[in-house]
Every structure is written in C-alpha cells, then in structure tokens.
Nucleic acid binder design. Structure first.
Length: 738
DNA sequence: ACCAATATACCACCGTCCCC
DNA sequence: GGGGACGGTGGTATATTGGT
C-alpha cells in the first residue's frame, strides 16, 4: 500500500483526521451539487453515488476509513495481558500483586516516618495502632450506629469529648513550632493515605472522587462500620455526577491510618495553623471553571459554610476553619484541596524497588487494576451481576467496561439494589484478601509465590563444542577458513566459557564483527531459542551491520521494528536470532523494559548476547547525546547470557568509565591469571594508530557555511601537526544519531 | 507550575434486526 | 408495524499526560 510511509510521519490520529476531512469534503461537495441542482446541470446523482449504486471510490474511502479507525483503536487500546499467577502485563510493564503490596508498604512506612518527624514538635503522639485501639476499636458497637440517611454532623460526634481529648497530642514546651515544616509533613501524610485508599478501595478511584472525601459537614461521605470498625466511603459517579451511590469499605489497616490522619494529623495541622488561619483558598480546586468543579463547590462546599450565600459564610477565618474541619484531604501548603500533581508525584517514586521505567502511570494502573480484579478476584458463584458490579466499582458502567476495557461482560439489567450492595462488599473484601491488606491476614497465594517483580535470570549453557565454532567459521568464510590470532580465544570465551562480560579492543579492519558473528552462528545450531542484540552508534552503520549479519544465514531484524505495535512484544514475534539497533535504541524505554522483564514475560526464549560496538562512544559522546543514553544504566545487563563490548580506539583505560556506566565496576586485566574479581579484557591491538581523538558535533544552517568552517578547522589542525589525519563526517543530526 | 495536547467516558442518535 | 435490543458513529465534557 502506497500510503504506508505517510503513517510513519504522522501519528495515526493525525492521519485519521486527514481521512476524516477527505470523507467530509467529498460528501459535502457532492451534496452541495445535489442541493443546488440546476446550478450545475445534470449533477443530481448523490443518491446513486452514496446509496443505490455505491460508487467504487466512495466504497474505497469508506473501507479505508474503517480500517484506519480499527487500526487507530487497536493502537491506542491498552494492551493488557494476563500473566499467571497474579499479574498482568500492561504496555510492557508488569503489574502484579507484589507491585501493589510493595507500594502500599512503602506508603505505611513513609507515613510512620512522618509521625516520627512530628515527634520533634509534639508529645503524646501515639502510634496508629494505639489510636485505633483506644478510639476506633473500643466501646460498644451501638456507639457507632448512626442513620446513614441523616448522619451526625461529624464523624467525631461518635466519640465523647473526654475520649478524644485524652488522645490529643501536646506541643513540646521548649521547641518553637515551625509551621511550614509541620504543614509539609501533614500534607505528605495525606498523600500516603490517599494512595492507601486508592489501593484498598477496590476498583480504581479517579482522583477527583477521592479528593472530595469529607468526615464532617454536609455531604459527609465517610462512615464507620459498627461491626468491623472499618471505614466506609460513599462514592458516586465522578464523570456524570449521576447520583448512583456506592459503598466502598476499606481494610482495617487503611481504616486505622485514615482515622489517624483525620484525628491526629489534622489536630496537629489545625494547631499549627492557629485559631486565626484565614488562608484557605476560595478556589479549593485551584480551577473552578469546569462544570464538575462548580458542581463540587456547590454541593460539597457551599452548604458547609452556612448556605454559602451570605457574606458571613465567606468570612476567611470561618471559611478556612470549616474547610479544615470537614474535608479529609486539605493541603495547607497550597491552601486548597490536595492537588493532583502532589498525588501523582508518588507514582514516579514507588514501588521503591521497581526501576523508574517499569513503574506504571495512573492510567496504566487503572487499566491494570481493572484487569486484576476481573481476572484474579473471585467471588463465590460469580455471575454476570458480580462481573458488572466489578465494573461499577471501577467507576464506569458495564457497557463502558466492555468497550473501553475489552471486557466480555454482558450489559447489566438493573438488578436488585440490595443485591448490588452485597456484591460490592463481596468483591471489596475479596480484593483486600487477595492483596493481603489489613492485619494478620494470611496473604492468599494464588498459584506460586514466584511472581516477584524482580526478574530471575535463567542460566544457559550452549552444550556445544569447539567444533561448532569451526563449522560456523567455514559457513561464514568458506572452506579455507582459519581463525586469526586472538579470534579463536574470543570465540571460545564467548561461546563456551562462563564469563558474562567480555570487553574487547580490536582495530578497524581486524574483523570485529566476526568475533561475535561466529559464536552467533554456532548458537543458532542449538536447540534452545536465543535472541541477541547488536548495537552500533549511528543509524548510518545500521544497515551495514544487518547486511553483514544476514549474509551467513542468521535471521537478523531491526530492533525498532519489534516495537511497531507498541512496547509489549509477544514471544511468538521474536522470530529473529539477532536484532540490530543504534545507541538511541539501546537507551530507549522500550528496550530497557524488554530486557528487564525478559524472564517475567518469555518462557522459552533465552536472552542471548548483547553486543555493543564502538563502546567507548557511550563515554565520548556523553556531552551531546547523554540525554538519549540516560536510561542505559537502568538496563539489567546481568540477565543476558553474554555482554560483549568492543572498541577500536579506547584502550583499557578508556573502557573503565563506560564499563562502570553500564554497571560493571570490577577491575579489568589482560593477563590470563585466574582472578574472580577481575574482568578479563581482550586486547587484540599491537599498535595504536590514532591518538588524541577529538570529536565535535556542530550544526550549520547551510552547507556552504559548513564547508568553510571545516576548512578552517582542518587548516588549524595541519598547522599544529602536518602528519595529522582528519576524518570529517557531514550529515544531518538525525541521520547520524537515530 | 502551568498549559496545551491527547485520551477517556459516556451520551444520544440512527439504522437494523428480531419478536410479538 | 411497533418496540426494544444492539452495534456503529460522532459529539462533548472530563481526566490525565507531557512539554516548557
């Protein structure tokens, strides 16, 4: 299809819009003539063209459009894949039970750390457990009963003044309170609790739903279950504001932390802001332009402040006090409700043990959680109603679940409301059980516990012999093939030894490619499917490398092409023996993710060699393309069977820095003396032809300017030393690098 | 921190098909 | 032939991301 190259320059969306407009234009132009029949005589055949005897070209336009929208939708749909026993793979990232558990644990730890920080300013600052035991868990169940239709004005009216004041923290007498620090700490604790709630409350919340949580005042939506003493949140539908209420119960631990946050942390905050605090922003959402926010203000705020109509209601002190006394997630750093950016910042930090590129975005987490609930959270006698309720808990209708989240649930038929509630709570507790949230619960082990986020390396031995290498050599170079000096050592080291990292220095023309090509061919004889990767610095070297590798029957592909359908590559699509890419590809998120998750995703395929040619460039080109190298240190090179790095010019010393850069910091040596703590370095160079290599990247507006500049440069070099050799590469930046 | 771009969610509407 | 279920479409308000 001729149109394909266009797709590579525009996004699918842009292209869809283009076809959209072509379609609209053609309909319009024909209909215009049709409607203005007579203006252009004999041109009233619109029906013929569009309906009766559909014209060929109109059919084509329609088909083309159809295909395009399908492609567009497939392309944009989150590609979620189930990974038994307890994870899903989403845009190439692994999202598992362990992921959530760790994130959650990180949150409780951070929260506890904040309590310790507060102890500098406050006495009688008890633990979460203590506060839960003395307030939340004590007293008769009947004390906690209240009408949900006409609830008490505040959650704290369920306790007596005396009960509460006994647990109230006190200031450390001789320490001056630093309001900024305390505010900051409490704000941070708020974010921790938000995340705990996010994970505990089943079906993923949307942020705006969480931020309107209130423990007092009108539209109070936080309650205590008298039996379990867990906190319950009443939510409605954020996107439409349809008043379809849903109850989400938090697990006991999250309940205790939330309770602590609104009782202790809020008390501390109120104290440090002082009686006369009047700074609370009128614009609680920091943007009241949208309908949703107007709605929230009207419904959640105004009635808290009297009826929101008289001047007095908006008195700054009174207003600030009311907001502090009713909303759970206020942030006195920004003097408004918690801002999304503060909440979202944690996604980039947690789970702590997961590398940055493997952490999920909010949207990915939403898709992931929906899939986890559907796939792993089972309720006995699961029926369509239960499945539909799972979607509702996620904050969308079953129909949306079906279309947007690729669900195969039948559309709900408005079943009995009381039943719905029952399902919701069943799913709710099943989810918390599955995650092992709460105290003293045995973590449910669905299948085995192997499903850690960290990838476990598979060790692999070729079981081959030296003979294989000769056979491979002959296949490559013909019957007369003999190993050159040094070549044999390297080939054996790669193919048969147990070493993992092999640094090599050899001059251009030595046959560096052959050094890893021979083992690569030998490897392809084996039964074990392995996939290797070869990297060259620039795109202009790429096709040459591919050509050389392909020449001997190795199946060779371009790394970038692997990701045309998105970052998630299925095992069956790894059909080449080796993929070549540039340094930019090496540092791409896609590749980092591919390698770091290799054995989480692929069952049968071994991650073979990772070869980096002209390795020293990783160091020498840091200054101007360091940005595109920045993810390279995140690659877990240890997962690869062999890592081969080659240079023509660096020398042993020049290799040290780039070796450290990719995570190998042991000393290097060239002697064959056994020393486990050193890396054996192959120096195949007897004589170094070039020294003092200077590389400079310079961009010019026009080629004529470039010429004169280069001439000047060369002249200066020649003045300095008439025996200098100068190599000039002139290309556009994209051509050179990508 | 702010703003523009993009993705998502959901609705309403329409034509088709099937059943009474 | 009426009505309702269903799938396809496009519009629009919101949510989230990503760039500066």
């Amino acid at each position: 299809m001729v149109l394909w190259p266009i797709l590579t320059y525009y996004t699918l969306n842009t292209y869809r819009q283009l076809v959209d407009s072509i379609r609209a234009l053609s309909t319009y132009s024909v209909l215009y003539r049709y409607l203005n029949n007579g203006v252009i005589p004999g041109d009233s055949k619109a029906d013929e063209i569009f309906f009766n005897h559909v014209s060929e070209s109109w059919n084509w336009t329609k088909t083309m459009y159809q295909r395009l929208t399908t492609a567009y939708m497939d392309y944009n749909k989150f590609n979620v894949k189930v990974c038994q026993p307890d994870a899903v793979l989403i845009s190439g990232k692994r999202f598992s039970r362990t992921y959530i558990q760790e994130f959650y644990t990180n949150m409780t730890a951070r929260f506890d750390g904040n309590i310790d920080k507060l102890k500098h300013y406050f006495l009688k600052l008890w633990s979460v457990k203590h506060i839960a035991d003395t307030l939340l868990n004590s007293g008769a169940n009947s004390n906690f009963c209240e009408s949900r239709a006409a609830p008490k004005d505040s959650l704290f009216l369920l306790f007596t003044e005396k009960q509460l004041s006994l647990q109230m923290p006190q200031t450390v007498p001789e320490v001056t309170l630093d309001t900024d620090v305390v505010t900051q700490i409490v704000s941070d604790m708020g974010v921790c609790v938000m995340w705990m709630i996010y994970f505990s409350a089943t079906g993923p919340y949307r942020f705006p739903d969480m931020v309107i949580l209130k423990y007092a005042g009108n539209n109070r939506n936080l309650f205590i279950d008298p039996e379990t003493r867990c906190l319950e949140i009443i939510t409605s539908y954020s996107k439409t504001r349809r008043e379809e209420y849903l109850c989400k119960t938090l697990d006991k631990q999250t309940s205790d932390y939330l309770f602590y946050y609104i009782f202790v942390a809020r008390a501390v905050l109120k104290h440090s802001m002082g009686e006369n605090y009047d700074g609370m922003n009128k614009d609680l959402f920091q943007d009241t332009n949208t309908v949703a926010e107007q709605y929230l203000l009207r419904n959640y705020l105004s009635r808290s402040v009297g009826n929101g109509e008289s001047e007095e209601d908006w008195d700054p002190v009174r207003y600030s006090k009311i907001v502090l006394n009713s909303f759970v997630f206020v942030d006195c750093v920004s003097h408004s409700l918690m801002n999304y950016s503060k909440f979202a910042a944690f996604m980039k930090l947690y789970p702590a043990s997961i590398s940055g590129t493997s952490r999920l975005s909010f949207r990915e987490m939403r898709h992931g959680m929906i899939k986890l609930v559907r796939e792993y959270v089972k309720v006995e006698g699961e029926s369509f109603e239960v499945m539909n309720m799972k979607e509702r808990l996620a904050g969308h209708s079953a129909a949306t679940g079906q279309s947007v989240y690729a669900n195969d649930v039948e559309t709900g038929t408005g079943s009995d409301a009381s039943l719905e509630e029952k399902y919701a709570s069943l799913i709710n507790s099943a989810w918390q059980n599955w995650l092992g949230l709460g105290y003293g619960k045995e973590r449910e082990e669905g299948g085995s516990a192997v499903a850690r986020n960290a990838c476990v390396k598979k060790y692999f031995s070729t079981n081959g012999s030296i003979k294989d290498l000769f056979v491979a050599g002959k296949k490559l170079y013909g019957k007369e093939f003999r190993f050159r000096e040094g070549q044999f050592d390297v080939a054996v080291e790669i193919y048969l030894s147990g070493t993992q990292i092999i640094p090599i220095q050899a001059l251009p023309g030595f046959g560096k490619t052959a050094l890893f090509q021979i083992p690569l061919v030998a490897l392809s004889y084996g039964e074990q499917k392995t996939v290797s990767f070869v990297f060259v610095p620039y795109v202009c070297l790429l096709s040459n490398m591919k050509l050389r590798l392909s020449s001997c029957g190795i199946n060779c592909g371009i790394l970038k092409d692997l990701f045309v359908n998105g970052p998630a590559v299925e095992e069956k699509n790894l059909f080449c023996d080796v993929y070549v890419g540039t340094f930019n590809d090496l540092g791409s998120e896609n590749f980092v993710r591919l390698v770091n998750n290799w054995y989480n995703i692929y069952q049968d395929c071994i991650l073979g060699m990772i070869v980096i040619d002209e390795f020293h460039n990783l160091e020498t080109e840091q200054s101007y393309r360091g940005q595109s190298f920045r993810l390279i240190p995140e690659i877990n090179f240890n997962l690869a069977w062999k890592v081969v790095v080659m240079t023509g010019t660096a020398g042993e010393k020049g290799m040290v820095k780039p070796m450290k850069f990719i995570g190998y910091d042991k000393e290097m040596c060239t002697s064959m003396v056994s020393n486990k703590n050193r890396i054996l370095y192959f120096d195949l160079v007897n004589q170094i032809p070039l020294k003092n290599i200077v590389k400079k990247f310079q961009a010019f507006e026009r080629s004529t300017v470039a010429e004169t500049e280069v001439e000047k440069l060369v002249d200066r070099f020649m003045e300095y030393d008439t025996k200098s050799k100068v190599i000039i590469v002139c290309k556009e930046k994209v051509t050179v690098e990508k």
